[in-house]
Write a protein that binds this DNA or RNA. Sequence first.
RNA 1: CGGGAUGUAGCGCAGUUUGGUUAGCGCGCGUGCCUUGGGAGCACGAGGACGGGGGUUCAAGUCCCCCCAUCCCGACCA
Length: 576
Amino acid sequence: MDQALRLSTWLVPTLREVPAEAEVASHRLLLRAGFIRKVAAGIYTLLPLGKRVCSKIENIVREEMNRAGGQEILMPILQPAELWHRSGRWEVYGPELFRLKDRHGRDFCLGPTHEEMITALVAAEVRSYKQLPLLLYQIGNKYRDERRPRFGLLRGREFIMKDLYSFDRDWAGLEESYRKMYEAYTRIFTRVGLNFRAVEADTGAIGGSVSHEFMALAEAGEAVVVYCPDTTCGYAANVEKAESLSSLEEIGEEGPIELVVTPGVRSAEEVAAFLGLPVKQIIKTLIYRTEKGLVAALVRGDREVNEVKLQNHLGVLELELAGEDLVEEATGAPPGFAGPIGLSLPLVVDREVLHVKAGAVGANRPDAHYINVLPGRDFPVQDVADIRQVSEGDPCPRCGRPLLSVRGIEVGQIFQLGDKYSRALNAYYLDERGEKRPIIMGCYGIGITRTMAAVVEQHHDEEGIIWPVAVAPFQVLVLPVNYEEAPQRELAEEIYNLLREKGIEVLLDDREERPGVKFKDADLVGYPLRITVGRHAAEGKVELKLRRTGENWLVSKGEVLEKVTAFLEGKEFCTG
RNA sequence: CGGGAUGUAGCGCAGUUUGGUUAGCGCGCGUGCCUUGGGAGCACGAGGACGGGGGUUCAAGUCCCCCCAUCCCGACCA
């Protein structure tokens, strides 16, 4: 027989008080409801209920990966540095890679992702175009030594991820694999009950060209998404990647450049106010430090620099605002007075800056700015790029409508990688004509544990979690109000056994607790359906209560199975 | 990594400013009685040596130094 699903024997340590460390809803509730416990910063144990939810999500993912033609494998977490040297990422990945040595002093790392390992596998095993396309995936632990783990399962250092890799003969094949995965992801996140949006994304450290992120919409999300309100346009992108129509507005009228004294006036807003100019007429000069040296980035005063775009444009691994001392060394003035004129640093000019005809810029000396500065005449504009951060209200790059913005949790990301890894790790095949060609790859990740937290972010109330049926740890809780009273106990047991036999995931709260405690726990844990066996037990009647709406019905025991089944199948649920 | 804060019982906190009996409170936990439709009540009880190390002092949870851990705010990612 199956294991006893009796709450008295399960480890479900609910907490009445909120641990001080928990900030966001999912973290707080998963701790309080007894789903997870912290082991170290960003490292958690999944308790029985947490493990059940996680398995539910994994199974949905597995079904959809299989449906899309994926084959499940399992690769080691421990990876030899050798593989990472070959792709060049041993250096590129930086401190986020957990590194360790074996007893012989050889370097290893804990896998944050598996492009190297799987490409090496495929390189060794795949020779012919007849073996392609190939979709391989796994579900397992991943390790990233995050700068700042936080929010419980939302950003851990150890987490569970599904990663699938596609191997195709050419780019057309890759696009087909990518499309399949896009559809599979849409099905998965719909099935787990998330309100999500697929958006265009930057490719970051993984590399590649085209990429989409799947964002669960939530205030706790760390990502910001902009999207077009016109659904037929449908533009949506991570702000890191988002573009906007450039303003073509010409600002100011050409005139002779002039030096003005601006004591203590630093920020674009201050400069604009001091000079009596609109902020957009200021040209901001920001000094960045990279591993290749300092660079200056120029944007309009009313814009912000998008550091991801700038980083990609420059092709550098490290990019951060230069400190005060470096700025002073490079410009001869404290921050706030940097400008492009006479500056001996590479200049990256945002394309909107070209339309400023009489800008104000720092003079690279304390307490002074130039006005009537004309780009191209007064400073060189060889390196022009889109480096501005898009924000809400900016015009959609496709249709020009004002963009909206929301916060999201990145629960999945898909990439078209191309041949970056196959060339590095020697994954080639022979085509029909016997010619050697690189395998064209894609990779596709889903954060399983993060998805679990995202579901909680979207499905909870003051009392606790409200699990969607598809991922609930148990679908039904049978709750005898007083387990010591024979009629209640017997009826509860009867219903519990009946539902179990029918394959319904049911848990019996057989604890000798007072009713209030049981009710509070039931709401906190978030079972979608509760069957209360109480004062009507003697008449053979029980109450069904929906966690989501709070609705409840008194039904006789003969009707229970039908009602429960109808609810679980998502049919109309009524008193009948 | 930079900035801010915290570390006292399983959880939440007080005590630290102004060193001084035996370190407290609520919840939780154990036993008993009582109670049983929204985290009951009474009684008894167990549990910490104050994140770690060093120092000052007759005396340190309290003052000083170093270290560690955790959380929050900024630059990265599933």
